[in-house]
Computed example of a mutant assay.
Amino acid sequence: MSSEKVLEKLWPYLQLFEPKLWLEINTKFLAPEKSISSLILPPRKILSATLPTRTTPIPSIPSNIITNEYALELSSWIDRKETTYTENNPYESKLLVRGSRDGFDVKTIYNICDKVSNTIIVAKVEDTGEIIGGYNPLEIHNSETKWYSSQDSFVFSLKTENLKNSIISRVTIFNYAICYYTNKLWLQFGGALTLGGNLKTEKKSNCQMYAYEKSIRSNLNGFSVEEFEVFKVSPKK
């Protein structure tokens, strides 16, 4: 290394050299044949391997009916997004009611979810495998028979083997968005989704089109369900 290179490359880092080593570097210019007694480390090896990207697993929704992909789609509808979320769901879902665990009577929903808002009901229809449900932003009341107004509620049918694309139907007649009919054990999203009686043993539930954009089922007859669940949906902290 020439004296010019020493001045250019080493002098700026003078404070990093041990005094003895720096003295021997300068001595080398005066007596090139003189040996160096300072410890010289081998060249540093450069790591060429690429470290794996750290990924954060997507929390699994606590459901026996819907998957994380369905949950992302529902969250997109709540936020009125034109494209579906594909990761980082902004909402977390807390299971409140499961038919096979808590009972299939509609009154179970009223008893457990009293004063709870922002709920999603999902149900798997008996025999057909359809997955239908509704989003209710309002508080549920277990002792009233009354229509409530909402501009944000919607009903849906999720994509399955027999349904090419998911269907969402938003409320259009706001004053008839949600009805709590507790003395006769009905829960209604307009006429678009009516849940009645024992959801498993009776066929009182049905899907029409009143107060919402479109019907979510082609079959307008009453149906029963294999399973249903109710979730409280909250923004992630």
Score class of each variant (00 low, 15 high):
95 L>Y: 08
154 F>S: 08
22 W>E: 14
171 V>D: 07
119 T>M: 10
124 K>P: 03
89 N>P: 00
102 D>R: 09
160 T>V: 05
140 I>V: 13
53 T>W: 03
173 I>C: 06
109 I>E: 11
120 I>Y: 03
162 N>K: 13
151 Q>W: 04
184 K>H: 12
199 L>N: 05
117 S>W: 03
136 N>W: 00
159 K>S: 10
170 R>P: 04
143 S>A: 07
83 T>E: 14
136 N>E: 06
106 V>G: 11
237 K>I: 06
31 A>C: 12
131 I>Q: 06
162 N>W: 07
178 I>E: 10
142 N>G: 09
193 L>M: 09
82 E>S: 13
234 S>L: 08
41 L>C: 07
28 K>R: 08
23 L>A: 15
92 E>H: 04
44 R>P: 06
76 S>T: 01
94 K>A: 13
176 Y>G: 12
14 L>A: 11
231 F>A: 04
84 T>K: 07
160 T>A: 09
135 Y>F: 10
212 Y>F: 11
226 E>H: 05
20 K>Q: 14
234 S>K: 08
67 T>V: 04
27 T>V: 11
154 F>A: 06
57 P>H: 03
127 D>A: 05
54 R>I: 15
118 N>S: 10
4 E>N: 13
116 V>I: 14
164 K>Q: 13
149 S>A: 14
73 E>K: 00
101 R>H: 10
140 I>P: 00
94 K>H: 14
136 N>D: 08
114 D>T: 12
65 I>M: 05
128 T>P: 01
34 K>M: 13
137 P>C: 08
80 R>D: 13
82 E>N: 15
70 Y>Q: 02
231 F>D: 06
123 A>E: 02
36 I>M: 14
28 K>A: 15
70 Y>T: 00
95 L>A: 11
123 A>N: 00
185 L>F: 04
150 S>M: 06
48 S>V: 07
6 V>R: 15
29 F>S: 13
102 D>A: 12
193 L>G: 05
13 Y>I: 13
51 L>P: 01
189 F>E: 05
159 K>F: 09
204 K>N: 15
27 T>R: 11
26 N>Y: 11
211 A>I: 04
89 N>T: 02
88 N>Q: 11
70 Y>A: 04
23 L>G: 14
85 Y>L: 01
210 Y>Q: 12
197 G>D: 05
198 N>K: 04
214 K>P: 02
214 K>F: 03
203 K>M: 13
93 S>Y: 06
